[in-house]
Design a protein around this nucleic acid. Structure first.
Lengths: 239, 239
DNA sequence: CCTTCTTATTGATATATATCAATAGTGCTG
DNA sequence: CAGCACTATTGATATATATCAATAAGAAGG
């Protein structure tokens, strides 16, 4: 019996592990048998990080992989020259920190909590051990990687070929669709973080936001954002 | 016995298959047994494309994966609005066209020959069949994917945070290090292609190239490029 | 070898975006 | 609740880069 079948029937069986296993597709763990899952589950470490704390630091050894159970974090790439580029946000159900797997065993990004965060840490050794036996899990990981690459390619296209307003629209659409899954949301990010997501200065981001506000496309009051005209936003995104 | 051990001893055994199997690390095929390799090898299709021909078209069904044996191709992402973003170049030993694997089975990029090109086409069915049995190959693919992601992240950082001269320097360093592996090379790419690699207009690229030429960092005459001062180029790349 | 077409180069100008600076708001701490 | 520090906002200006236009240089074809 597969773990996901078990958990579908007895949802509370593994507490909120179902967030990491069943609520996102593809999930690294959905195809594991109960005993395979138990291997990982029994060895996991539940950890709580406070807002602002660094979960993984770029350049340090990759020993664990994080499964997000609650809260929000930002993933950024620290450039040698000092500036940071914000790659994406992490929300419950996401898996992160495995870019160095099978390559140099080093973290290639820094992950920092934006709110208080609950995660499970799973040892890379356990993951590698299981990957060496479970083709199912390896295939799921390949699937995840391919999705990562597709998302990154889209981001590359957005950031390099769109004008500022298109990029701001993309940031708002990303928050609405992938992060908060609602037209109304309270930001856990600073204006600087938002600007970093869109690869521009915070002044430019704020100005563009104001244009959208003046045009009646969004409402924004401090950190409370409401998207009024989604279609207009999509249109701006598409130039 | 692994295939790569066999081929190390009898290099001509499989013709120039060693380009795809042994000369790049990681290689998807290096950990296969002889019989596993034979499965793929016997079913492969050797194809020649002429310069300018499209090998894979973005949006079409993913049926085969291409192993490059000779020549050069460009990989670009076609944006809905019409403009193209040049992601990277493909040279012998590279594997390409598997971003849609296990996801939507669609090509997410267009691959076009820049010179005459010899490739082997391997059916996705064969790859998937073997991936379902060989954890070794799955691990190699994960490794490849992770390297792809690391490279893409660097590219994202380069293209979004560097000024024009830094990006032109990056393009030249990419050609020198990853593509031609020489300080002197004859370009198979147009100025427009080079500009696309650096995410700028061809006029801007040409102007920056002229600056480098005037500063004695490179020599350039039509398509013949010589890098005179590599250190200066690296310094410009690092801002 | 001349004509035609494409690609490359150079120059002048426009424009988007960053930078710098000043002000306003927000939240924390004694 | 006053004062300080940090973040957000707005405005003025500078600058990098794109755009447009004109010319030059190659490449292809009769």
């Amino acid at each position: 019996m597969f773990y996901y079948q078990l958990i579908m029937r007895k949802c509370a069986f593994y507490g909120n592990c179902k967030i990491c296993c069943c609520e996102k597709t593809p999930s690294l763990f959905s195809k594991l048998t109960v005993s395979e899952f138990e291997e990982l589950h029994s060895e996991r470490k539940e950890v709580v990080f406070k807002a602002g704390e660094v979960i993984f630091k770029q350049g340090t050894t990759l020993t664990h992989l994080a499964c997000f159970r609650s809260g929000m974090a930002k993933v950024y790439y620290e450039r040698p020259e000092g500036s940071n580029i914000l790659i994406n946000l992490i929300v419950p159900g996401n898996l992160t920190g495995n870019m160095g797997l099978y390559t140099d065993n080093v973290h290639h990004q820094t992950i920092q909590a934006l709110t208080d965060v609950e995660i499970c840490l799973i040892s890379i050794k356990d993951i590698e051990g299981l990957l060496g036996r479970s083709e199912e899990m390896a295939v799921e990981l390949i699937k995840l990687k391919n999705e990562n690459i597709i998302v990154l390619t889209n981001k590359l296209a957005s950031l390099t070929y769109k004008s500022m307003s298109g990029r701001v629209a993309d940031v708002l659409l990303y928050l609405q669709k992938d992060i908060y899954q609602s037209d109304t949301f309270t930001l856990s990010l600073s204006r600087q973080d938002l600007a970093d997501l869109g690869a521009m200065t915070k002044e430019s981001f704020i100005r563009t936001l104001k244009e959208f506000k003046d045009a009646g496309i969004i409402k924004i009051k401090a950190n409370l954002v409401e998207i009024i005209n989604l279609k207009a936003l999509v249109k701006i995104s598409n130039n």
